[in-house]
């Protein structure tokens, strides 16, 4: 599985790197584009010292932790949401006749290493925030755990988004609200959002476990919404709880695939 992934990704990467100048330009511009979200946070904190009870550095920590996971998924999994294009163009048929999972073929299709710049950008923000905040070193073990959790949650979301497109071939854009919307939602401390919305993204769609709940633990803070402290450690459970239905939905989607044309 993994070796096939690397192989396919490498083939696409080589094709992308054939045009060096445009490759470098895209890497730089992609990083700048991703950094516009940081620019927004900086502009906000040029006008205030605290947002919904969280400081500049704390917000950057939450942003960085979520965005490392999000950009990682965007690079390595995000292409699966282009499935409706492949279905319409008939190229999904070609993926189904290969002895490799179509999920891997989709994820690596047109794989471009230029997106690595975004991960680097998010990682730099996270590193800055970790250095700037005076954190309890005994709690830092949670940082890698929350990033892996975030990767699994976002990857599951993207897989769900792709599965939905077996049915929703006419309006694939609707899934952007869930994939990119989740990326946007987790950039800020959840204390800015309304209680009901936070309940929804904790118990229905477990986005709170990407960076909010584990992040509170790392920052050594109580949840303003008053959830019990054991919730801070439930991230991996939530991730598996989302990955399972995503995998089932994908399998179901393949079995109901209708193909197009004559």
């Amino acid at each position: 599985m993994v070796s096939t992934y690397i192989l396919l990704a490498w083939t696409w990467a080589r094709a992308a790197m054939a045009y060096r100048a445009s490759f470098a330009l895209m890497a730089v511009l992609g990083t700048v584009l991703a950094a516009t979200d940081v620019a927004v946070i900086l502009v906000i904190f040029a006008n205030t010292t605290s947002l919904a009870g969280f400081s500049h550095d704390e917000v950057l920590f939450l942003y960085g932790a979520s965005n490392v996971a999000f950009c990682f998924c965007d690079m390595f999994v995000g292409n699966v949401d282009r499935i409706s294009r492949h279905i319409k163009a008939g190229t999904f048929d070609a993926m189904l006749i290969r002895p490799v999972s179509p999920w891997i073929q989709l994820a690596t299709d047109n794989f471009s290493p230029t997106r690595a710049g975004r991960i680097a950008q998010a990682a730099a923000v996270l590193a800055y925030a970790l250095a700037a905040l005076d954190l309890d070193a005994r709690r830092l073990w949670m940082v890698p755990v929350m990033i892996v959790t975030g990767v699994v949650i976002f990857a599951s979301l993207w897989t769900l988004a792709a599965s939905v497109q077996f049915v929703l071939t006419d309006a694939p854009e609707v899934v952007n609200a869930f994939t990119y919307g989740s990326g946007q939602l987790t950039q800020y401390p959840f204390s800015v959002y309304a209680r009901d919305l936070v309940r929804g993204v904790t118990y229905a769609l477990p986005l709170a476990f990407v960076n909010w709940q584990p992040g509170l633990y790392v920052l050594g803070r109580d949840d303003p919404f008053g959830t019990p402290s054991f919730m801070r450690f439930l991230g991996p459970v939530a991730a598996v709880g989302l990955a399972l239905p995503a995998w089932l939905a994908w399998r179901r989607g393949i079995r109901h695939y209708r193909s197009t044309g004559s």
Partner: peptide, 21 residues
């Protein structure tokens, strides 16, 4: 319509941030 939906979702998320500010 899908675009309208996405724009609306982002509108809600950004609105909360601006309200906090």
């Amino acid at each position: 319509l899908a675009g309208a939906f996405t724009n609306s979702v982002f509108g809600v998320l950004r609105a909360y941030v601006l309200i906090a500010l």
